[in-house]
Amino acid sequence: MPEVIEPRSGVAFRLAKGQRLTVIDPQGEQVSDMLAFAQDDTREVISSGRSLDYASKLFLSTGDPLYSNRSNIMLRIVHDDVGRHDFLLTPCSKDTFRIIYGDEAPHRGCFGNLAEALAPFGIEPDQIPVAFNIFMNVEIDGSTGALTVAPPKSRAGDRIVFEAEMDLIVGLTACSALQSNNYAFKPIHYQVEDAPSATNR
């Protein structure tokens, strides 16, 4: 049975090389921020810049690798029902809600949730990079470069599957930003399994 991340919360866990992580949107239109750190040295971390640079595209999907800041492949996308995720925007935070939404008592956001979940692994808030924002739909104006956060394209039961290329510490959330989730907060499900053997793939 999948594990449940409650709305506006986050978790962290170990993912061994060769294992697969499935992230599921059980109700539809819910974003999940994902981070990855190398278990052997948490200074090695998932890199938006290197992943997008090496793929020469903004939208990563089935078959695409996610690189670290040291140009090592951390994860590879092996299945993707949606095909639209964001790798540009930083995890939402108290400052996001204060600056963008004008909240006077802002929620700590995905950044705060990830910081708390990753703390037992010795990972500090300043180590948190741009996340791979699963199911997040950011539209880009081709002439001005303006960014618009649109409703996710994911529907109930849609999933994405990653295979670990090294031993990892993974942070995962059910995103806390209203606009990202079409103005509703819902859970995220996830499951860790061993990859199928070559004969069963």
Rank of each mutant, 00 (worst) to 15 (best):
E163H: 07
S180Y: 06
L58I: 13
A105E: 14
T62Y: 08
S61V: 06
D141V: 01
A177Y: 15
I24D: 08
D64E: 11
A131Q: 14
C92E: 06
Q30L: 09
P7G: 01
R14W: 00
A16W: 02
I46F: 08
L88H: 02
F121Q: 05
P187T: 07
C110A: 03
D103G: 04
E124H: 10
P120V: 11
G28W: 01
A12I: 01
A55C: 02
T90D: 12
V23M: 09
P26M: 11
F13V: 08
S93H: 08
E165Y: 01
S32Y: 04
R76M: 09
R14L: 04
C175Q: 06
S61Q: 12
Q191G: 02
I100E: 10
T199H: 10
Q30P: 04
D53Q: 14
R159D: 10
H85I: 10
D141G: 10
L172E: 01
P151D: 08
F111V: 01
E6K: 11
T96V: 07
L118Y: 07
E116T: 15
P7C: 04
G83C: 03
I188A: 03
N182G: 04
P26Q: 03
R70E: 14
L21F: 00
L58F: 12
D53A: 13
S51C: 01
V161C: 13
D126E: 15
Y54R: 15
V45N: 07
P129A: 02
L21Y: 01
N72I: 04
S71C: 12
E6V: 11
D64M: 12
Q19F: 02
V78Y: 03
F37S: 02
L21T: 02
D194N: 15
E193S: 14
R76T: 15
I5N: 01
K17V: 13
L66V: 14
C92P: 05
E3F: 08
G63K: 07
I169K: 00
P65F: 00
P2W: 07
T22H: 08
Q191T: 10
G142M: 11
F13C: 01
A184K: 07
Q19L: 06
I123G: 00
S68G: 05
A164I: 00
S71R: 14
E139I: 10
C92A: 11
V11W: 02
E3S: 14
V161K: 03
N181T: 02
S154V: 01
V4Q: 08
P91G: 05
L35Y: 06
I128N: 11
G49A: 11
L75I: 03
T90M: 09
M34L: 15
G10F: 04
D103M: 11
F97T: 05
P151I: 12
G171C: 05
P151V: 11
G63E: 04
R43S: 15
G49Y: 06
